[in-house]
Each structure stands twice: as structure tokens, then as C-alpha cells.
Design a protein around this nucleic acid. Structure first.
Lengths: 179, 179
DNA sequence: ACTACTTATTCAACGGATTGCGCAGCAGAC
DNA sequence: GTCTGCTGCGCAATCCGTTGAATAAGTAGT
């Protein structure tokens, strides 16, 4: 269980609604920890039951009401406790790589098409991350040190994937000609 | 659902027992798709029920009996069907990165220690992968093209992580001095 | 006027994944 | 002679995560 900790980290930074969190999970942390809004709302409910967070109701006009969640001292303690114990190793789940592993059965042309689509997505993300990173850099890298490092992880990850994609592309293209 | 496909890919390559598969998940594919033996045995049971695989009992002396699983034509069809439809985007779950994101609360020294441990693990994996890759290369890169590409993904992933780790290390070390 | 998208939250159902436990025998270390 | 570790399989409980749907009101486009 550790979505809770990801949420607590984000709340440590600032008060937020479930909706806000869901969006934040789409950037920086999101690349490395993905969660749907249902999951987040559920987890916020549990965290509230355990007094790790509190919320206040914010009525809005035009938009639906929202609940702004704040981390409590108890939540902060839990976070610190978690930070102290060793992290479980990183897991990845890359379906496309499994496809490559089973590539002898696949249609090379179709794989190449999919590779291109995925590369486009990665390139887009890379651009977004790089923009955010240089923005943080301009605002002062020391204040945003941890967010900056988080983004760097995302950037290096995209770059590594794209590099791999290049290798795959040339290898598959050669296959395609010789076959 | 896609552990099933990862298993089918491995079985496509060769007949294997649940135990064998569990070990294979620790290498190449494993870095990108992790699964415990319980999960694998369970999935093999289901695949068998659905006639996607069959097995034969192998009594062994010294060691416990084993079941060697083979992919069936029906399983192969399912695999091909899956290969044709678009892969769901890669997900990562990196607890240590969440720790960095919440780094202002953490003890920098402890983070540095953990970073070193994780780096050691990554370096070990990198070495294993590189050995396997060069072994495949010697045996003829074309026969093992897909396994080779799979390994390359693992290698690039380790390298990217280690590069990131270096950035984190220098940044945290600077923090540690100034604080 | 109709459609589509965004903000905002929540429920219900199912399936996938993790954790903990148990069995069983052999090999090698200390 | 005991203990650890590897090979090999399996069950049960619980938790995590995904999918699908519902509600509700505003805004922007065609």
C-alpha cells in the first residue's frame, strides 16, 4: 500500500481536492505513479477515517462544491514513518515490451506502427516535462529541488525509452526487408 | 489482464514449469513485468482450464515432481489476437521517487543511504543483463533478436535510473552541507 | 438548440495482485 | 547434526486497481 503515501506527499505541499490530486498525478509523480480519480477519492476517504487528513467544504458557484483536504499531524507522522523504512523496489508494467519479447509471432509492420504511436506519446510527455523543469529552474532551483528531481526522473525515463525505440525500429526495419 | 500474455510469450519460446517461469520473470521480462510464483501458478491453472496450455507430469528424483507446461494452438491464437490490439501504456510504480518528491520531510542522510543501496541493486542487474546480452550477441544476434531487444530495454532502464541517481546524489549532498 | 467538454464527487462490481501460510525433500554449510 | 537455502507446488484472505456508471451544473463550440 503506497498510493496513500503519494497522496500525503502531495498534500504536504499544499491543500488540495481529490480532483486536483488526480490532475497532479498526471504530471511529475503521475508518470511514476498512476492513479484514477476513483482510487484517489477512495483513499482520501480512508485517510480521513484514520484522521490522517481533514477537509473543509468549499461551496462554489458555477462549479460543484469541493472538499479541500489537508494533511494532519498524524498524517505527517505516518509519512515520516514511511520515509524511514526501505522502499519496495520499482515495478514496471510495459505491455509493449512483452510484445517485443514475443515478436516472432507478431506482424512486424503492425509493431512498427504501434512503436511510432508510443514514441509520439513519449515525445509529448518529454516536452511537457522539460518545459516544467526549465520553468522551475528559472524560479530558483533550490526552492523546488525535490520537484525538480522528480521531473528529472520523468525526463530521463522518456529519453531512455525513446532511445530504445530507435534501436527497435532499426532492428525491425531490417527484419522487414530481409523477410 | 496481461500476465497471461507474458506467460504465453515465455511458453512460446519453450516448455517450462511454473517455477521456471518465476525465475524467468526475474530476468529480462521480469524487470518490466514482475510476478510472484503464486500468481504464476494461479494463472497457469486458469490457462489450463481454458485450454490455452497443457502440461505433462515429470517425476524427478531428488527434486519434487514438476509440471511442464506447453502452449497450445488455442493459446497461440490468443497471443496473436492480443499482439494485434494496442498495448495499454506503460505504468511504473517507483516508491523511492515518491520519497524524493516528499524529500523536504525526510532525513537526507537516510535517503542517501537508501539511494546507494538501490544503486547497488541496479548496477548488479545491469551487469547481469549486459552479460546475457553479449552472450546472445556471440551466439548470433539474429536468432535471438527479440530476446536481445528485450534485454536492451532492461539495460537502458538501469542506465537511466543510475544516471538519475547520480543527479540526486550530488543535489542531496549539497543540501546536506548547506543545512 | 444540441453536443461536447470540464469541474467535482461517489457507488458498485469484478478481477488482478500481494501477503501469509503450508507441504515436501534434497544439498551443502557450519 | 542442525540450519539455511533451493526446487517445486498449492490454498486462502485480503487488498489494490480497473471499469462502468450516475449525478450535477457550467462553459464553449457548431
Amino acid at each position: 500500500m503506497s498510493l496513500r503515501h503519494a497522496i500525503l506527499v502531495l498534500l504536504e505541499d499544499q491543500e488540495a481536492s481529490g480532483y486536483d490530486l488526480a490532475r497532479e498525478f498526471a504530471n511529475s509523480i503521475g508518470l511514476v505513479w498512476n492513479a484514477t480519480h476513483q482510487q484517489i477519492y477512495l483513499e482520501l476517504g480512508k485517510l480521513n477515517d484514520q484522521q490522517m487528513v481533514t477537509f473543509r467544504h468549499i461551496p462554489q458557484d458555477g462549479k460543484p462544491d469541493k472538499k479541500l483536504y489537508q494533511i494532519t499531524d498524524k498524517g505527517r507522522e505516518e509519512l515520516i514513518r514511511w520515509l524511514r523504512k526501505p522502499a519496495s523496489p520499482a515495478r514496471i508494467r510495459d505491455a509493449f515490451m512483452v510484445k517485443i519479447a514475443g515478436g516472432n509471432l507478431a506482424d512486424t509492420t503492425a509493431l512498427l506502427r504501434e512503436l511510432d504511436e508510443l514514441s509520439d506519446m513519449r515525445r509529448e510527455r518529454l516536452a511537457t516535462f522539460q518545459e516544467l523543469a526549465s520553468k522551475l529552474d528559472r524560479e530558483g532551483r533550490d526552492q523546488h529541488l525535490y520537484s525538480y528531481l522528480t521531473l528529472r526522473r520523468g525526463i530521463l525515463d522518456q529519453q531512455a525509452w525513446l532511445e530504445w525505440a530507435e534501436e527497435v525500429r532499426t532492428a525491425l526495419a531490417r527484419e522487414n526487408v530481409s523477410a
